[in-house]
Design a protein around this nucleic acid. Sequence first.
DNA 1: TCTTAAACGAGACGGTACGTCTAGTCTTCTA
DNA 2: TAGAAGACTAGACGTACCGTCTCGTTTAAGA
Lengths: 197, 197, 197, 197
Amino acid sequence: MDKTGRGRPRSERARLAVLEAAADLLIEGGMTAATMEAIAARAGVGKATIYKWWPSRGHVALDSFFMRTKTTIAVEAGASLEEALTAKIGALAGLLRDPATGPLMREIVAVAQSDPDIRSALEERWVRPRRVAAEQVLREAAERGELRADVDFAAALDQLFAPLYYRLLFGHEPLDERLAETLVRQVIGGIAASQAW
Amino acid sequence: MDKTGRGRPRSERARLAVLEAAADLLIEGGMTAATMEAIAARAGVGKATIYKWWPSRGHVALDSFFMRTKTTIAVEAGASLEEALTAKIGALAGLLRDPATGPLMREIVAVAQSDPDIRSALEERWVRPRRVAAEQVLREAAERGELRADVDFAAALDQLFAPLYYRLLFGHEPLDERLAETLVRQVIGGIAASQAW
Amino acid sequence: MDKTGRGRPRSERARLAVLEAAADLLIEGGMTAATMEAIAARAGVGKATIYKWWPSRGHVALDSFFMRTKTTIAVEAGASLEEALTAKIGALAGLLRDPATGPLMREIVAVAQSDPDIRSALEERWVRPRRVAAEQVLREAAERGELRADVDFAAALDQLFAPLYYRLLFGHEPLDERLAETLVRQVIGGIAASQAW
Amino acid sequence: MDKTGRGRPRSERARLAVLEAAADLLIEGGMTAATMEAIAARAGVGKATIYKWWPSRGHVALDSFFMRTKTTIAVEAGASLEEALTAKIGALAGLLRDPATGPLMREIVAVAQSDPDIRSALEERWVRPRRVAAEQVLREAAERGELRADVDFAAALDQLFAPLYYRLLFGHEPLDERLAETLVRQVIGGIAASQAW
DNA sequence: TCTTAAACGAGACGGTACGTCTAGTCTTCTA
DNA sequence: TAGAAGACTAGACGTACCGTCTCGTTTAAGA
């Protein structure tokens, strides 16, 4: 019935060592280097301990990413639409640009393509909360009459967030500091000469 | 030295069998299923033959994707900016939505994250040509005075193309048929109520 | 320092449960099945408790064998040489033929080959007492003048006991009921036609 | 149909390296040391190669024993019963006494107790041929009228062979050089004072 | 009766070896 | 000389036990 405190409790030391080792290996050599054996060896942990608490390498990677990403998705009070969005997109860009977290995200997106479990976890725990927060900003602007009536919020959010991942994954353009501002400006105001619209 | 057709010529049958087998396996079970052994077995080909002509699984996957993607990046003559962009983005969306090619692209993006060779090949042979063509459309519109002077072309292209990959890879929203049109409209005209800008 | 019975005394229940569980598992599936974890689980005992009282699986097996073998090595008074020996060899044969003890002995002999501790314990606690008792019978017969002067007692004992283990371990012939009598008869009288000797 | 010479042929080098490595490891540290990993590492061979050609460690051990045991079970022509038997038993005793083969046999007998496959292979390929050859010697003596009519051949063979394995496995007495002669003498002539029989 | 300390069950821990799978290479025969 | 077959070394996979280590929980002797 009551299973409280039966047996040796889980080792917090081991948990952290695994996540740190995984993060380090992922940054150094990606998923190729971050084998279960390598993670276990570097963490000074038995392989079975890892398998006991995480069902796959992907889950370890995901958790190690979250461990290294203590961001808050705060809503900025009293900020203009443009300011609020720029703050959010800029923060994410900084994270993806950071050599301590960007490479992790790249690997996680990769494993997510062959692991539906990771894919949905990534969507629910990472992508969605940020989109929901940004959508809230957009909706408030809409209520203030600052947006067109026919705005497609989902598409607008994609146009703000997607370029960051696109550049991270394909590497065709750098994730520089002014990108967030540019993206916000162009999605709010458009790129057409004003008289044309 | 002498490259005259001495000896048995390369088997076109084998080349195609490998690419078809790889594509099928990738669609059925992703990179996990598309092992070299599985590809060789299904293609009725020796493993060594594959290694002789392709340096890695990623390259086979990339080639199999191109084999299944006989698209032309034609420049539409006499089309408006909006029409031209919608045609391009829509075509790509269709390709990524197609169950015969979308899953291939997902797997290729995944392997590209741990194989710089694939990553650059993907960028040069796939991403760049489409961006160059679309940029050409934008530049012509700019010359016609249809665009603002401060447009960031790279960012604009990202805002058109990135959402497609974003949705393909993360699956948070469907790649539906009207997406291209929406993206084009919003990036050209912006989402702000007109008087505000 | 003070070894007064402070603290909880050793659980006799646990001791017996371990030996019973080990014996059962050994009979069912040999050493392969009788893992420490399986013994502990079946006995309803913590693994550490087993390690506290027995240094290895082999020792548990040996003890479980002795627990199931409550034989007396009684000296038969007033029996002839042949009767006394047949009684002893027959008793051992019966024990090794018994499905409740024979398989245990097989496994113990096996572990003894890679554990010198078990090997010497087996020799001292099991083999030697029986040999000493049987040798006593032989020596008394020799004092009565019933044996040749050049008898090698050790070899004679081997010729009585060894065939039982030989058949148990190699299985080339059954350990049937008349074996003891035959062994005794042949080692005492020899197999040669009488005139030849 | 005809599978002649298709593919790379089996490597004789690997086969021998495995058997040598296994034999060495078995002698040095028994089955505990002769893990598949250790054998593979010492032989400079992949583990899969071992599993491809041998179903278990026991089979490798058995084969390595046979490799190190190039004995002939020749039938000595024109020898007396006693000479013929002493030659055979003495040869086997020498082999079991040899530090290069005796320890191997000990380990093989041990694994045979938990692997029926090994047990039957050992019986058929090792024990039986020697017993058959020795039984032939006995039967010829019987035809010459040198043996009693009621001789139990199987038991007699056990009384000749079993003591060797008994001493090898239990270690209670040494396998010295005169043992064969003593065993033969006592089983043929018996140990009783002649007048008693 | 209350303290106290050893023994207990449960079960997590760092390891080692298991037997399997795939990678990428090599060697043979065949076309 | 390219290719199909398939054996090779190497090494990661996920599992099973090993023997050790905490935990909270008995259990009886001694205070």
